[in-house]
Design a protein around this nucleic acid. Sequence first.
DNA 1: CATTTCACATACCCGGGGTATGTGAACCTT
DNA 2: AAGGTTCACATACCCCGGGTATGTGAAATG
Lengths: 193, 193
Amino acid sequence: MAVNRAEQRAATRRALLTEGRQRFAADGYHQVVLAEVARAAGVTKGAAYHHFDSKAGLFRAVVAEVQQELGERVAAEAERHEDLWEQLRAGCRAFLASGTDPAVRRILLVDAPTVLGWDEWRALDEESSARHLAEALTALVAAGTVAEQPVEPLARLLSGAMNEAALWIARGGDSRAAEQALDRLLSGLRTSA
Amino acid sequence: MAVNRAEQRAATRRALLTEGRQRFAADGYHQVVLAEVARAAGVTKGAAYHHFDSKAGLFRAVVAEVQQELGERVAAEAERHEDLWEQLRAGCRAFLASGTDPAVRRILLVDAPTVLGWDEWRALDEESSARHLAEALTALVAAGTVAEQPVEPLARLLSGAMNEAALWIARGGDSRAAEQALDRLLSGLRTSA
DNA sequence: CATTTCACATACCCGGGGTATGTGAACCTT
DNA sequence: AAGGTTCACATACCCCGGGTATGTGAAATG
């Protein structure tokens, strides 16, 4: 067990994050009561406020964690392919699949924009997944696979489409059908080749 | 002035809806305090609970109103065109433009999914705008303009894309660029003709 | 070993959603 | 038109839960 103070601090912080993540994912931000998160983590509300400035602060930390994991998962799946176009498709499919994870669905896709505000949410999203998408599109434009055009609005459109599709799939939508529909949309971007 | 009881009831209900709509749009659901909405409407909190079962109930009613208006606006814009394809484009552009309306942006696009829950929100969305989109796509498929395919997932993708794009535009994104990017995506759906 | 630091615990405040009950004017009945 | 009923609110209250102010004991420091 941790006797060292830094270790102890890190341990309780992690416990709060883990417990918070589970509850935020299961019950949604507003249903979660901070004192119960702390109690489940083996501490009191005071400890939580010692580590995070507010309930939203804890949520923010959880969001960052989940988002980073998601970004890595998508990137890892994309990098299994050589072809740029296949990288894009693989990344998109990985994103769609991860919508079934309650942590991603409820925390990232539903609650985060409201709790953190759309601006801050978008900034976080930018760092993790949205940037990769924009980079992939830029690379495809540079390679001539996709027609020359502003990348940012296109990335926003695709990002929104996939967010919604991930939720739709999580709610019972046919993931195969969603992937095919996305493929059709994407293929429209290709220069005739 | 209303002396009749039914008129009076309708008047206060409308006052609550109007005042609630403004505040929900300006400050966001959670920042709004119900008692102040009532006070601004010239009544007390008790009156609000006489008309709506909860704060979320008032919000739900506001959402339904805004969503219906939006649906009508989009439909009206679409119907100014004869060609099915142009109807789709016009409807999409009208939707994107309406993202600048704070009521639409904050209430419909940001808060509604969290407050009402994604399922209920989707059900409301289905009645108003999403159905029109699905119908338009179905008509285009029937006319042979768009390739035969399941319409529902495609509609979800486009709906999500436009939601996000509307928010992006409202936050300062270039609406012209978004329209063009959307056009490119849509044009990919056309059968080569 | 004395002192400071720090990671929490305890006790408290208070804003705001929700509820239970009161009230007077409109409505219906005879 | 008088008495009773309904109803559209107002008033007073409960209480959960986020946030804060302060206490405490063990680890770190010298």
